[in-house]
Nucleic acid binder design. Structure first.
Lengths: 214, 214
DNA sequence: TAGATTGTTAATCGATTAACAATC
DNA sequence: TAGATTGTTAATCGATTAACAATC
């Protein structure tokens, strides 16, 4: 078994949510053990990849002949993914997408809780959505600093995204989840994850184009 | 310059949307040329990576001393990403997230147009959102087959996702964009792209946890 | 025990980086 | 011309796959 103190390889980390959701499903169905071969079959991965991945995140590992303990493994992966340490987040841009994320409670399951939304439109501000306050964007930096909030979600148009990002950074935000289709410039140490919908759409188009060609 | 008939490496393809959005911005600002070093600086990439990527998608390439022609490069990348050949798509699950995507017109810019939505809730069905019909899910397979629609977007809860996916496949869908946090099983030849929000959240948590540790 | 399954070591593959030649 | 910049070839790095030993 490998040393758990070592960082989990990035490609392994990418696959962890898939393992996790599969294990949750299996646990619900009452399965107690599962082999790497079965997991690999369902997720269409090589079975050695699965074993290597699991070895990298599981202290206990699997047992020859019986495989891995479903519930234990599920918890270990969940812990590795940070599902059990909740972080508060603010969301900026209370348009359609922003409100959708705001009213989606499923994020808490993954360790992130949206506590407030901000918008430049004063008409929207002051309302509550799903029990969460919607405030004017001018209050953003103070709000974040006072509550030591470290995650900011940008669901605003591309044109406004950089300005919003700067505001978030000035409020002490350390991690940005960006849904705007634009590249953000941030100071060293601030982490940006782009929810790249444009890329996703391209992947779909690309696949269809390849089909057409052959 | 490399042979353009070769497939674009997957890692290169992942970066293309970033180049594209940056070039769009530069074009708007009136820039005519740009060097790989400048692009690399902004996107925080190695400049050789940028040149290799651009060589893989640009017929014309760049010119020593002047760099790459912004507008031309933008178009070549856009073409490579499939932004200019529009595909119709249907969306299933007209909840908050589904309605948000439905009312977001920006997708057409990236070559995908949502033409209709479906929901199992008959109350929602029959309505129009943003000029697009919302129908009962029972009509899904026929609708897709008749119009030869090949892209399906799933914005339903995880529990319903597999059933919906099967319906889409039975309607002839070849590419699925899945927002439900669950793994889908599909026949050979059908492409699934998971919009893995759980992974995104984990990346943010992970980064914060690393900060805390050091 | 025999056999299924894990976990590790070595080989392969693909992507990134470094060094440098080509070009305007 | 001199120098900035591209594009290519070779070296390095990381991830995947193959082969196989370890284990219950």
């Amino acid at each position: 078994m490998e040393n758990l103190n070592k960082a989990v390889p990035s490609q392994t980390f990418r696959r962890l949510p898939d393992y996790h959701s599969l294990l949750v499903k299996m646990d619900e169905q009452g399965a107690e053990n599962v082999s790497s071969t079965v997991i690999a079959g369902i997720l269409k991965l090589n079975d050695v990849v699965v074993r290597k991945d699991l070895a990298a995140v599981s202290e206990s590992g699997g047992k020859p002949r019986t495989g891995y303990a479903v519930r234990e493994l599920m918890k270990q992966i969940g812990a590795c993914l940070g599902y059990y340490n909740t972080n508060d987040a603010v969301l900026v841009g209370a348009g359609q997408l922003g409100r959708a994320l705001l009213s989606y409670d499923g994020f808490s399951e993954y360790g992130v809780r949206i506590v407030a939304a901000f918008d430049s439109n004063s008409g929207i501000a002051g309302l509550e959505k799903n029990g969460k306050p919607v405030m004017n964007i001018s209050e953003l930096p103070d709000y974040c600093r006072q509550r030591k909030i470290r995650i900011g979600i940008i669901t605003a148009p591309a044109k406004a995204a950089q300005t919003i990002c700067d505001l978030l950074v000035s409020g002490g935000i350390m991690a940005v989840w960006n849904f705007a289709p634009t590249h953000l410039v941030v100071p060293e140490g601030v982490f940006v994850h782009n929810e790249n919908m444009a890329r996703s759409l391209s992947l779909l188009s690309q696949h269809l184009a390849q089909k057409d060609r052959s």
